[in-house]
């Protein structure tokens, strides 16, 4: 019988803006430190942000960011989301998979992905990994 705190946290990463990617990375870190396996499923715009050489590029902020909030977000000295994910991988079980459909849609090949991405999978495999834990869409 699996304790609640060991159930996986599975994040469907849809958005590709830096604020949402950071929010997702923080959740991943939180779950990882608590001993919960974490699965990330990269789709659409999030997948684009994980391309080799593009991870640290400016991915803009979501339209929700106001004129006064945007500079605060940019100036904040927190870690980059890619760095947070690396730390999460260090401390716990974090599996980052690219969505095969999105790869196909955007013409992205395996070699185009940043090494932090562990592999490519389809949605059924992602759901299997999500098992009895939670699925969050960001």
């Amino acid at each position: 019988m699996v304790d609640d705190h060991e159930k996986p946290l599975s994040l469907v990463m849809f958005s590709g803006t830096d604020d949402k990617l950071t929010a997702a990375a923080v959740l991943a870190v939180g779950a990882a430190v608590m001993g919960r396996p974490v699965n990330l499923f990269l789709q659409y715009y999030a997948l684009d942000a994980f391309r080799a050489g593009r991870v640290n590029a400016d991915h803009a902020l979501s339209p929700e960011a106001t004129v006064s909030q945007a500079p605060l977000i940019r100036a904040h000295k927190g870690q980059h989301w890619s760095e947070l994910l690396k730390q999460a991988k260090d401390v716990g079980e974090v599996n980052i998979q690219a969505c095969a459909l999105s790869m196909d849609m955007f013409g992205i090949g395996r070699e185009d992905l940043d090494p932090i991405v562990d592999g490519i999978e389809g949605v059924a495999a992602f759901m299997a990994s999500a098992s009895d834990g939670q699925v969050v869409f960001i």
Binding site: V29, A32, V33, K77, G78, L84
Partner: peptide, 15 residues
């Protein structure tokens, strides 16, 4: 350091 850095560095060190 701001959240989540304190806890992640601690979790890592505890290992």
């Amino acid at each position: 350091l701001s959240c989540p850095m304190p806890i992640i560095k601690t979790a890592k060190a505890m290992k």
